[in-house]
Structures are given as structure tokens and as C-alpha cells.
Amino acid sequence: MSEYNFAYLDEQTKRMIRRAILKGLAVPGYQVPFASREMPMPYGWGTGGVQVSAATLTPDDTFKVIDQGADDTTNAVSIRKFFENTAGVVTTEETEKATVIQTRHRIPEAELTEDQILVYQVPIPEPLRFLEPRETETRKMHALEEYGLMHVKLYEDISQHGAISTSYAYPVKVSGRYVMDPSPIPKFDNPKLEMDAIQLFGAGREQRIYAVPPHTKVVSLDFEDYPFEATKADHPCDLCGAEDSYLDEVIMDDAGNRMFVCSDTDYCRSRRAAGHEGRLAKEDAA
């Protein structure tokens, strides 16, 4: 479709977004305001991530989109199609082959490398939002590094549930300075935030971009006597037998049968291709 500029956005807009990305990389965890554009999809469907991807993509890139770990859900398919049409880039489902990966709510299981960029879709970039509704006040709290309130939330978790029950969008401190919302990834993924790839976060409706450069220290907040724990369902994957991946629970019938499968579909597929088998692998094939 030659009517579109490469990757849909005009060059001036991409320049503006790249400036925000560079600023975000220079100040890890700091939310950089940017002039978010109207995109041909509704807010909440990844307009922030799409704009960051558009500003990041080059014609030589290989692009992958995942939604909750899966390559084949509506959101992932439509964004992948969008860039196939407007940028003409090669797309893939294989994590290792991709150079730019746009993700919603997961970090891929396969370890990312320095040649890759991970773009997150962020619904609400402000980790303090539900504790302090005033934007003027939260900005001041970030500026003055007043993060006591974040621990109040964790305190409430423990006092009500006996453990830190926040299981996704678990707040982290980046590079010893800014407290950041890692977007709604499960806390299982939090330790992976310290990685070799560049991580960019785009929030379209909230008009914020932030970033974590490679090899940056990312610490999940916790208490001395209630340390951070990366949790997952205590099962192996029923299809590929993996014990180290984050699992989705699928209810099979109304008799209490359920199965656990890797939420990262590419990881599961590649493991099965390599001959690993889980409890229900045979049934699934049939």
C-alpha cells in the first residue's frame, strides 16, 4: 500500500516520538510526555505501543507481535497485519528471529539479545495513580523521590491477604531512581526486566513514553520480611512439559478438569518441535 508513509506515521511524528524515546532511555524509568496521535484502532488496543513500534521500525527489521504471550490472538494478528500493510516489513512468530517485538502483558520466555527491541503496550503508566489521583502530585512525588506511598499499597496487600497479592503490574525501581509500572506483565516476568535488549514502553491514551536501557538495574519493591517472589502456577506445561515458563490455566469441562499451557505460544511450539512432550500432548494432537 504505497499510499501510506512507511509505518503509517508521518516522518515529523516519528521524529517527535524518537526524541521522546531517546529522552526516556537517557532517564531510565522517567515518563516522557509525547504528543500521542490518533491511530486507526481504539485506545486500549495498543495505540502507544504501535506508535513506538512505528518510530522504531526500519525496512530491514523483522517484526513480531505478542498478546498475553500468544501470536495468534486478535490484537496480535491485527497489529501484525497493520505493519505488514503499512511498513511492508517481514513478520515472524519466532522470538529469536525478530528484531522488534511488540508485546502486551508478557515478556517472551526466550532470552532476548542486544540486537532486539521490546516494545510494551501500557494502559496506565503511572504506578502511583490508584493511590494518588492528582497528576500534579504524582509528578512532584516522582521529582522528589517520595515513594513511601507505593509501599503503603504493598502493606495493604499483606495486611489483607497475608502476602503481597499484587500479581501483575508489580512496581519496580529502575536504576535506583524512578519507580515504574512495568505494564501489566505478571510478576513472574519482573526478574526478566534486567535484560540485554532495549525495552520501550508506550501509553497512547495517557501520552507517555518511558524506557529501560539494556543491562539496567530493575528492583521489584518489597519488604525485608516479605521479599519479592516471582510466582507461577505450580505445574509443568501440559503440552510441552516446560517447568520454567509462565502458564495459562484452561478449564476443559464442568467436571473440574483443567490444563496448564505455556502462555508464550512460540516457546511452547518450539519445545514441542524439539520433541518435548507434556501430559496432554498426545490428546491435543489427536
Binding site: 509501599h151 502493606y155 495493604e156 499483606i158 516479605y226
Partner: peptide, 17 residues
């Protein structure tokens, strides 16, 4: 408890107990 603890956490107290 959270209300009372807020100031403690704001000055760096990190032990829930």
C-alpha cells in the same frame, strides 16, 4: 495500619512486622 505506617515507610522503614 496503613495510614499510620505511611510516614514510617516514607522515611524508609521497610520491615512489615
Amino acid at each position: 495500619g496503613g495510614n499510620i505506617g505511611e510516614r514510617l515507610m516514607a522515611v524508609g522503614d521497610r520491615h512489615y512486622g
